[in-house]
Simulated scan of single mutants.
Amino acid sequence: MGEGGLTSLTAVIAPPSPPRPAARRRPFLPRLTHFASFGAPGVLVYLCFVMAPILISVGYSLTNYNPFKPPVKFVGLANYRLLFTDAQFLTALQVTTILTVIVVVVPNVLGLGVALLLDRKGWLYNALRSVFFTPVILSSVVVSIVWSRLLDDRGPVNTLLRSLGVSDPPGWLSDPDVALYSVASIVCWQMLGFCVVVYLAGLQGVPPELLEAAEIDGAGPARRFRAVTWPLLAPSLTINTVVLLISAFKTYDYVKVITNGGPGSGATATIAFNVLQTGFDSNHVGYASAMAVVMLVIVAVVTSVVLNFLRRREVDL
């Protein structure tokens, strides 16, 4: 038998290699310890500063808790039934809705336009980006104080209008029909820079090859934006919309500093403003907690619906 035949015979009668032993699972206790050492701090912070206040508020909302009028009695859903017949709360809900719609739409539209103008290279455009983003890093209280001085009846804006021949300029913060839109404009002004930066990041992520291919196919600037750029900005739109929605719905500091809920009877009073006024000024903690729980539910539901809708739009692209 030749050497080749012997090699083949050896390969045939060679015993199969023993099966590898199954991988042993690591013991549960070390894995739990490993997870706890990294995850426990974050979980504890979340439980202490997010979940615990929510649960406490829910508990207070079922009572007539007033720290200066004991004893505390369980009233069940009485606070919630009273809430939806309270004209002040319903007015605050309407004010908050109008404010939220304005703050979500205006900075998104203007932010996209400004981002398209600034999506160029050069030191001038870099400087303009910093200028637009500066209001975002300012305190909302500082912004409110500055704008309340500018929009005062005898402030620089009305003084300029009078010098231009407007004999009776509007009361930006004293007219109940105008004050809410003035507050909403101030919030939009501060949030505009955030939208600009997010949209700029999205624009810089658009592959130039797609734009060049569309241009070669004869698509003009508007067609390229509608068919290529805008669909790829879907994640940026999602981020801006959700952030603006949550920020607008819990607006308090602007209202407190600029108008204190006025002028008139709650012309600019949001739900968050009413919660703090009722809980800390009137000391009706149980009723204020019911307002806070309803506000939380509304924000959670609306945000979930909007987020799911926008995410489906991203998936469909």
Rank of each mutant, 00 (worst) to 15 (best):
E3W: 10
G4Y: 12
L6C: 07
L6A: 14
T10D: 08
A11M: 11
V12W: 13
P16R: 13
P18H: 08
P19V: 07
P27S: 15
P27E: 15
P27W: 11
F28C: 07
L29Y: 10
R31M: 14
L32D: 10
F35I: 11
F38C: 04
A40H: 02
A40S: 09
G42V: 08
P53R: 01
I56S: 12
G59C: 06
G59I: 01
Y60D: 14
P67T: 10
K73N: 11
F74W: 12
V75M: 02
L77C: 09
Y80C: 03
L82S: 15
T85E: 14
A87P: 10
A92S: 15
Q94A: 11
L99T: 05
I102P: 02
I102W: 09
V104H: 03
V105Y: 03
V106G: 01
P107Y: 00
N108A: 10
G111K: 00
V114Y: 03
A115C: 00
L117T: 08
L117S: 06
G122D: 03
L124S: 09
Y125F: 14
N126L: 09
N126F: 02
L128H: 05
L128Y: 03
F133Q: 00
F133P: 03
S139H: 08
S140H: 00
V143S: 03
V143M: 04
S144H: 07
V146A: 12
W147G: 00
S148M: 10
S148L: 01
R149Y: 11
L150V: 13
R154A: 15
P156E: 02
N158R: 05
R162C: 09
S163M: 15
L164K: 03
G165A: 02
V166A: 05
V166N: 05
P169I: 01
P170F: 09
G171R: 02
W172E: 00
S174P: 04
D175L: 10
D177T: 10
V178A: 06
L180Q: 04
Y181T: 03
V187C: 06
V187K: 02
C188P: 04
L192R: 01
V197Y: 00
V198M: 06
V198I: 15
Q204P: 02
P207Y: 08
E209G: 07
E212D: 15
A213Q: 13
A214T: 07
I216M: 12
G220S: 09
G220N: 11
R223E: 15
P231N: 06
A234P: 05
T238M: 14
V242S: 06
L244A: 12
T251V: 14
T251D: 03
V255R: 00
V257F: 01
T259P: 04
T259E: 00
N260I: 08
P263K: 05
G266S: 10
A267D: 11
T268M: 11
V275Y: 07
Q277Y: 12
Q277C: 04
N283D: 13
V285C: 04
S289P: 04
M291D: 04
A292V: 09
A292E: 05
V293Q: 02
L307R: 13
N308W: 12
L310A: 14
R311Y: 10
E314W: 01
E314I: 14
D316W: 08
